[in-house]
Amino acid sequence: MLKQTVNPKLLKAFAKIFISALALYFVFTKIPFRDVWFQIKDANVFLMISALVLFVLSKILASFRLLLYFKAIGIKLDSITNLKLYLLGMFYNLFLPGGIGGDGYKIYLLKKQGYSNVRRLLGSVLVDRLSGLYALFCLLIITFVFCSFYISCKQAVLILIPISYFAYQHFIKYIFPYLKTTTKASTLYSFIVQALQMTMAFFLLLALGQNANIPGYLFLFLVSSVVAALPLTIGGVGGREITALIGADLLHLNIDIAIALSLCFYLITALVSLSGIYYMIIPFETQLYANKLSLNCTNSHESE
């Protein structure tokens, strides 16, 4: 008798869909969806559009950060081509959760175009993610200090910023030495990217009519961003909302506003990510050929 095998990618996709659906179900059994929808429906349109623009700018800068890593390993992409590749990766991450994912697809395409050092490709994509998480961690600490709740010696946590920077620098230096020349510039990019997204969250809060206890909402927004980065849900949906629900209760924030903020962020992310579908309809390789662009790859086989 032939054994039936389960496709692990399909299983992964269903698991993510199930976890996202379960988390959303839990959230909206605690707080009626109509209450959250009323908050979003009455939001200031101008401020919502401003938030969208800030998010787009943050993603453009994030693509420049990734380009720094690519150049460091010998991949010579122009900025426009790299941005197209970045948008395609966003689309894969959000709308095709069960496959190889956006990062995996970037690696696949670049390898197909002639770059053979997959280890360095993996390293550059991983460090790109780590750089963003490091900046997110630092901003989390800063917003924590400005939150209204009282904790004695709360400012003492600021010491974690230089300590974590030292640890991060040395981690890159010894584990990914071929990327060490990019660390300072990429870290600056990461802080600007995260600052833009924090400003976006601030605009969303104003659009939703919330102008009190802003540091608390921003702190919760950053915590939910960390949760959303875990590969457990579809693009973070469900994970953000359940974090907003629990966190708003603990921090004594308006739960409707906290969940509306997370949903607005997801909707803007989905809207921007959807632009990457163009590069599925017209394959990325066809784009390169039509525009007479090339991925000039310099393969390196130096010891790492």
Rank of each mutant, 00 (worst) to 15 (best):
L2H: 03
T5Q: 07
T5L: 11
K12A: 02
F14S: 12
A15N: 09
A15T: 15
K16I: 09
F18P: 05
S20P: 13
S20E: 05
S20K: 11
V27K: 09
F33D: 04
W37L: 14
F38E: 14
F38P: 01
Q39L: 10
D42K: 13
M48R: 06
A51G: 15
F55T: 10
F64W: 12
R65S: 12
L66T: 11
L66C: 04
K71Q: 11
L77H: 05
L83W: 04
K84G: 06
F95N: 09
P97E: 00
G98R: 10
G99I: 13
G101I: 14
D103W: 10
K106Q: 14
I107H: 04
Y108D: 01
Y115D: 02
S116N: 03
N117W: 03
N117C: 02
V118N: 01
R119S: 04
R120G: 02
R120N: 07
L122E: 00
G123F: 02
D128S: 11
R129Y: 07
L130N: 09
L130T: 09
S131M: 13
L133H: 05
A135S: 14
A135Y: 09
L140M: 13
C147T: 15
Y150Q: 15
I151P: 13
K154H: 03
A156Y: 10
V157A: 00
L158C: 03
L158D: 01
I159Y: 01
I159K: 06
L160W: 00
F166V: 15
Q169V: 15
H170R: 15
H170K: 15
K180L: 06
K184R: 14
S186N: 08
Y189W: 05
F191A: 03
F191S: 02
V193D: 01
Q194G: 03
Q194A: 03
L196T: 00
Q197S: 04
M198A: 01
A201I: 08
L204N: 12
L206P: 02
A207C: 12
N211E: 12
P215A: 00
G216H: 14
L218K: 08
L218R: 03
S224K: 13
A229G: 15
A229P: 14
T233E: 01
E241H: 13
I242N: 08
A244P: 09
I246Q: 02
L250H: 06
L250A: 08
I257P: 03
S273Q: 05
P283L: 07
Q287K: 02
N291Y: 11
N291W: 08
N296V: 12
C297Q: 07
H301V: 07
E302W: 04
E304Q: 08
